[in-house]
């Protein structure tokens, strides 16, 4: 007879694994990817391919030669980082910048902290912010949707958020809004913006899939979107001339992508439901503050990075509800 295996209980496992979770997220990104290709064509394809491949490559090289551990470049997390990085870049950005972004994301954002599970900040956002600060022009000239065959030579313009930011100083918000794509178009993603951020409906489909597969919980997306809606709603009710409609804030910029994919990153978000709600609400409030009162038209990425930094604190002080009242032992 073979030697019996002995191990502590439990002796049965759910079969869930990190690659399964990561590929689950990747699958949920497919609708948004499809929509982006539909709007931005070949540019989106090039940026995404370069981003994903270089993220995998850098992960492999760093793990193998610098950290000298067993490479885990195919566990899906590098692919996911690459995809998310591509999603928050303009589709006309030169590919060598994408490579630099991928290096920043994997190298600075992830591997310096010790790889998957140890990073404090969301790697894709680190890459994006790195590029945003290094190449402000390239990162803020967005191609107009519908130019399938143009890559870096596509005609560009400003995002609705930027237009709004510049406009409200001179004119009432309602008037600017009327010159922009309709809410339906914003919902469908027919606007200028980072390649994967535009299609709110496709991202929401992805969220439903992730909720169904129980990859994420509702706490973070709901609290971010909810707090943005409430905060901008209050401002709008106070002064509709100076502040835009809350729906406009929900549907534009990187909010949907940020709330559904960036902020819900396992590693950099809090561990408890209560913690997640606080984290999400904080991100929402800071996003609105930056959008309306800050220097930049868009603030989701900064808000998420700021609250990534608060996550260890939230984990330390926000505890789940324990079962049963505490009584003195003995």
């Amino acid at each position: 007879m073979t030697r019996l295996i002995v191990s502590p209980s439990p002796h049965t496992y759910s079969g869930e694994s990190v690659p399964r979770l990561m590929y689950g997220v990747i699958i949920s990104l497919l609708p948004a990817f499809g929509v982006s290709v539909f709007y931005f064509g070949i540019g989106m394809l090039i940026v995404t391919t370069v981003s994903v491949l270089t993220c995998i490559l850098f992960e492999y090289l760093i793990q193998k030669y610098i950290l000298q551990t067993k490479p885990s470049h195919l566990d899906g997390s590098a692919i996911l980082t690459g995809l998310l990085l591509a999603f928050c870049l303009p589709a006309n950005i030169p590919f060598w910048m994408v490579i630099i972004g991928a290096l920043a994301a994997i190298g600075i954002g992830k591997m310096t902290f010790g790889g998957l599970g140890n990073n404090i900040f969301n790697p894709a956002l680190v890459g994006r912010v790195f590029l945003f600060i290094s190449f402000p022009v390239a990162m803020t000239s967005w191609p107009e949707p519908g130019q399938w065959m143009q890559y870096t030579d596509a005609a560009t313009g400003a995002t609705p958020l930027a237009l709004m930011k510049e406009g409200v100083a001179m004119r009432p918000a309602g008037e600017i809004l009327s010159e922009m794509p309709s809410f339906l178009n914003l919902f469908l993603g027919n606007m200028m913006g980072s390649s994967g951020e535009v299609a709110a409906f496709a991202l929401l489909i992805g969220m439903c899939y992730m909720l169904y597969r129980r990859i994420i919980t509702w706490h973070i997306p709901v609290s971010i979107l909810g707090s943005v809606f409430i905060f901008t709603g209050i401002l709008w009710l106070v002064n509709p001339d100076q502040f835009a409609n809350p729906l406009f804030h929900l549907l534009t910029g990187g909010l949907m992508l940020g709330a559904i994919y960036m902020a819900t990153d396992y590693v950099t978000s809090p561990m408890t439901g209560k913690g997640m709600l606080i984290y999400g609400a904080g991100i929402g409030v800071v996003t609105v503050l930056i959008r309306i009162f800050g220097a930049y038209p868009e603030g989701v990425q900064f808000a998420i990075l700021i609250f990534n930094g608060f996550t260890p604190l939230l984990n330390k002080y926000i505890k789940p509800k324990r079962f049963g009242k505490e009584v003195a032992h003995g």
Binding site: S72, G117, N118, T217, Y266
Partner: peptide
């Protein structure tokens, strides 16, 4: 493998 802090255990 290392913990990815997915919060499932919690």
């Amino acid at each position: 493998i290392q913990c990815i802090r997915c919060t499932r255990c919690v």
